[in-house]
Design a protein around this nucleic acid. Structure first.
Lengths: 242, 242
DNA sequence: ATCCAGATGTAACAACGTGTAACAGACCGG
DNA sequence: CCGGTCTGTTACACGTTGTTACATCTGGAT
């Protein structure tokens, strides 16, 4: 079995250096990266077994990068953050992160986590297939994650706005799991608008998506309201390769 | 396409009860166990898809149990602890735990964690099928747990509120068993309101549900009052897949 | 049998949660 | 410039929920 090649992604050079040295001292190959371009370069240049991906990468969002990586790669990803709030974890899981660890971390725990994730990866032989899955079928509808196209049960293509698609993605990634408005907001845009907004934007957005995909928006069957909690995608979701 | 069977292992019966009810309300089959012997019994008796294993089990150590389980089974294990020290996490990962979660839980995160672990192990096609077990027939009424729809003996759909449905679920899950107000409150809402409320909310809620499903709410036949105890669902309940 | 303290039923009310129409501002293309 | 789309904010309507106050019932004590 070959030595694990870990990609360490952090915009802070000191953290990068410390982590790579630590991993190397523990028998792993550690490659530093500061941003998405670095990640792409390393992954093109050679095999990467696992990515330690910081959530805050200066101008870039680790969550966004994770989501993009997931579109075309199944490499295990451990998200790293100084703030491991539940919302962030949900967002990370929503975009396909394998695990989450908070800074400052116990380095021994980090090693244990890395081993656990790699162990799981090996144990799940078909994990690669799951990570490439990006076509979602639900209640006769079809959402293709690559093309961002949505087709109705009758075969019509339905035009959704950027926000509506993001909301649909968040819901499809968590079928039958109630999502709070904060969680939805976090999944929609972690680094963008101020998350402190106490407005009704999510409700309106949900209403707009309902108007487009529900047979009867006044009696929704797909996106149900869970009073006092938020919204839950109530349809079965089948995920297949696109 | 089977429903997830979760084994809840905790020596504290209150925690066990709370967790199993929460999981059941979310469409999972939850089986309680207090110690290793219980675990072995359940795993011998039938399929277990995932184990929520508390670290501290009275005289027994969850870590030790996890290690032993790993010797001959690859069932996914989420370790649970009130103290999520790094040492404990490391020990858990070292003996093969799949994930770790600290009490008290964010229940949405717990569900997300369960889903993530199950997705990784490819043990489930989708969480979408979890409600197939939950159609309840009683006295001509029909409650479909999948759609949360309630039909009267005359075939009319009756609209129940979220709380009314939760109450009905709790009653249907325990036919002919008197439930105290505290038990009903616990079944209704684990993470919400303070359970110490000495108000009359449960009584009012029961009254509201009676108004909707009793032929004569002043002379209830379905939800009977047991004075000094609480309420008992007096009708026979037949549970079938929906 | 009567009495009564405690238990329970319930109407009324206030606060809260959610749906949604209307509007304004930003943005883009013709 | 104008028109169309997207998006969040605002205001209002309506359903839900718990609290409060009072009426009624009940079971045990006398």
């Amino acid at each position: 079995m070959s030595i694990l090649r870990i990609l360490v992604v952090d915009d802070d050079p000191e953290v990068r250096s410390m982590l790579t040295q630590f991993l190397q001292r523990n028998g792993l190959i550690a490659l530093p990266a500061a941003n998405e371009a670095d990640i792409r370069k390393h992954m093109t240049a050679g095999r990467i077994d696992l990515i330690l991906l910081d959530v805050m990468l200066g101008d870039e969002s680790g969550i966004d990068i994770c989501a993009k990586l997931r579109e075309d790669d199944d490499v295990p990803i451990i998200m790293v953050s100084a703030l491991s709030t539940d919302q962030q974890r949900m967002a990370g899981y929503a975009v396909g992160a394998d695990d989450y660890i908070a800074k400052p971390f116990n380095t021994s725990l980090l090693l244990a986590r890395i081993k656990a994730v790699m162990s799981r990866t090996r144990r799940t032989a078909s994990l690669a297939h799951r990570r490439r899955l990006s076509r979602f079928a639900f209640a006769g509808w079809l959402y293709d994650g690559r093309s961002d196209e949505v087709k109705s049960p009758e075969g019509y293509q339905v035009t959704l706005s950027r926000r509506e698609i993001s909301l649909l993605q968040a819901l499809l990634a968590n079928p039958h799991i109630p999502l709070t408005r904060e969680e939805i907001a976090a999944a929609l845009d972690v680094t963008g608008t101020d998350g402190d907004s106490s407005g009704r934007a999510i409700d309106v957005l949900v209403g707009r998506l309902r108007n487009k995909i529900e047979k009867d928006p006044k009696d929704p069957k797909l996106i149900k309201t869970q009073r006092g909690v938020g919204y839950v995608f109530a349809a079965d979701v089948e995920v297949t390769p696109s």
